[in-house]
Nucleic acid binder design. Structure first.
Lengths: 161, 161
DNA sequence: ATCCAGCTCATACTAAAGTACCGAAGTGCA
DNA sequence: TGCACTTCGGTACTTTAGTATGAGCTGGAT
């Protein structure tokens, strides 16, 4: 209750001050009128003073209101480098160029995971001989001479994670 | 020359406009005074009009100036995530945990690049025996049993690209 | 039906990788 | 100086990887 009343006062205090100044001014004017303006011809000075006063008053009041209204928000877009974890995507074209068969690619993938030929054979339910054959064939197709180089090339060509 | 003169005009045009309005006003006031204010008692209305006019004038002039001067800019930074290809950074802590010697780490790095033991020996100007020793030792430290597993683990722990 | 690519497995062999153990030389430190 | 550690190199051996070749089987294309 008290807070909202206080806020209301703050919000409209410029209007209150303006009204108060107006009241003071009326007294001043009446006093000036009574004091000096019996004599004819000084009416121009009187009006000039009033004009000056109200001009200044208008400026002051305007500035008081504008001070809180003219807040221009400028949104500046700032590029912030964010390390984005690239989800692995197979380079399909690179993979097709190698002309690997499905089995050979399977073997290659398991190789890249560090499996030995024996482990690959167990994983695919094949004999060691078969794995060796596939491995040998895929080495020829990939133009490498060892599994280590095959793995390095496969990762470089983005056909294995 | 022409440009600076034009700029000067633009800079002070509000003052010029203000002066012009003042001049016009004098004519209007004189006319009003001659037209209506023969009768006594309407002087308060006359002064009231002048007060109102100059208040409005002050406000208008003030706003014109304030429009360009009192603009408080609030800068709001808007984050724009920019995908940046993560430059490889070694996980120093993971590397330290392995307690690899400098030579062993060198061998590991070359392994990860697909080099055979012979190639590593040639690259480091060492004998094949030495490379085998280093390899065997680093396998124990990395708790793996083959170079392919060592490479896979090294990449997974981010100690090689 | 025939042909062919791909998958499977096998054998035999060579090459490379990996293990184990050893010793010499250098380095840093108490 | 002696100790601990690393580096380097060696020998001997086992295991794994890789090559070469052949053969049986299958599904799909011609």
């Amino acid at each position: 209750m008290m807070g909202s009343l206080k806020n209301t006062f703050i919000r409209y205090r410029y209007i209150a001050v303006y009204g108060l100044l107006m009241a003071v001014l009326v007294f001043v004017l009446k006093w000036l009128q009574w004091r000096f303006l019996i004599a004819e011809g000084s009416i121009e000075i009187y009006i000039g003073l009033i004009a000056l006063f109200f001009t200044v008053l208008g400026i002051v009041v305007s500035r008081q209101f504008d001070r809180r209204k003219v807040v221009r928000t400028v949104v500046i877009e700032k590029e912030i480098p964010v390390p984005v974890q690239t989800p692995f995507i197979v380079d399909a074209s690179a993979l097709e160029n190698l002309n690997l068969t499905a089995r050979e690619y399977e073997v290659l993938q398991l190789m890249a995971k560090g499996c030995s030929n024996t482990e690959i054979a167990e994983a695919l339910f094949l004999s060691l001989s078969t794995i060796k054959t596939h491995a040998s064939n895929l080495f020829v197709k990939m133009d490498v001479t060892s599994r280590t180089k095959a793995i390095e090339k496969a990762k470089r060509l983005k056909i294995t994670p």
